[in-house]
Design a protein around this nucleic acid. Structure first.
Length: 280
DNA sequence: CACCAGGCAGTGC
DNA sequence: GCACTGCATGGT
């Protein structure tokens, strides 16, 4: 991986197995949008960033090499050897190969945990366009304006913790509003041992998040995987359950591997976009 | 009109 | 423990 700055843009070349579109559109995040030219714009923290990928390079518009090295490389998990992990996973389970090959440009993002928690609470019994709409309204109503109104931050847990469920009516989040409030209060109030979630045993971490009303095993695993870097978390949604029962009726050790979460993303993305066109 | 969407809590057994 | 049901909202 080579990082270099040319005027106000930063270019990364020599990245193995990275596909910007797959990574941002495989359902792990909800606030990146692409324009007709394929330029992705996203807000992470208080930064609005525009990114574009060509055949040979990844381009970060109007930023600095320092910011790319110290923030975006970790956000996109660019330093991890995904080829080695993919080989390990398909050795463990040869049937993973097709999904893995199809989805090989995916990287697991390191997102802000509170945003992930809130987003996946909203995701339950919901579809992706509507999830994006609710999150977008949440930011524009309760987030802070940045770059002179070009965008809004994701509202902090502390901000949401001050509200009551009926204050979220304009989000049209339905029955999830009360879950969001409970999550914000427990998260901001220190009832959830956030710092521990990076390191404690995965079952303990899952139970810790499940103290929140409206957080079950699936949402907890998404938060651990996408927010706390716990690659052994294996979220089981309806798509994954369907695949497990149809393709692995006798079970598979993928679900308990150290990199189970990466296998899960390969299977999830493949199931939603390519399965039945290309059978295992 | 019914049925579905990256689930979960409540209930009954 | 396990099977079932209702849930807000919006799209087919």
């Amino acid at each position: 991986m080579i990082i270099q700055q040319v005027e106000n843009n930063v270019y990364i070349t020599d990245i193995d197995r990275f596909d910007l579109a797959q990574t941002l559109e495989c359902g792990q995040c909800f606030r990146w949008k692409s324009d007709s030219e394929g330029v992705y714009t996203g807000i992470v923290g208080e930064e609005i960033q525009r990114i574009y990928q060509t055949e040979t390079e990844l381009v970060f518009f109007e930023t600095t090499a320092d910011k790319v090295e110290n923030f975006w490389v970790r956000y996109f998990d660019l330093e991890r050897d995904y080829e080695a992990i993919a080989n390990h996973l398909s050795e463990l389970e040869p049937k993973l190969k097709i999904a893995q090959k199809y989805a090989q440009g995916i990287r697991i993002l390191n997102q802000e945990p509170w945003e992930v928690l809130c987003s996946f609470i909203i995701s339950q019994n919901n579809n992706i366009p509507r999830i994006q709409g609710i999150i977008s309204r949440m930011c524009s109503i309760f987030g802070e304006e940045i770059c002179g109104g070009k965008g809004y931050t994701f509202p902090s847990a502390g901000t949401i913790a001050e509200l009551e469920a009926h204050d979220l009516a304009d989000l049209r989040a339905g029955f999830r509003a009360k879950y969001i409030i409970d999550a914000a209060r427990k998260y901001a109030g220190g009832e959830i041992a956030k710092d521990e979630l990076y390191i404690i045993e995965i079952d303990k971490a899952r139970s810790e998040l499940m103290k929140i009303f409206g957080v079950g095993p699936k949402v907890a695993d998404c938060v651990l995987l996408f927010g706390f870097g716990r690659l052994e978390a294996f979220p089981q949604d309806v798509w994954i359950k369907r695949i497990l029962s149809e393709e692995f009726p006798n079970g598979t050790s993928l679900t308990t591997d150290k990199y189970a979460g990466i296998a899960q993303q390969y299977l999830f993305h493949w199931a939603r976009t390519a399965r039945n066109k290309e059978k295992i």
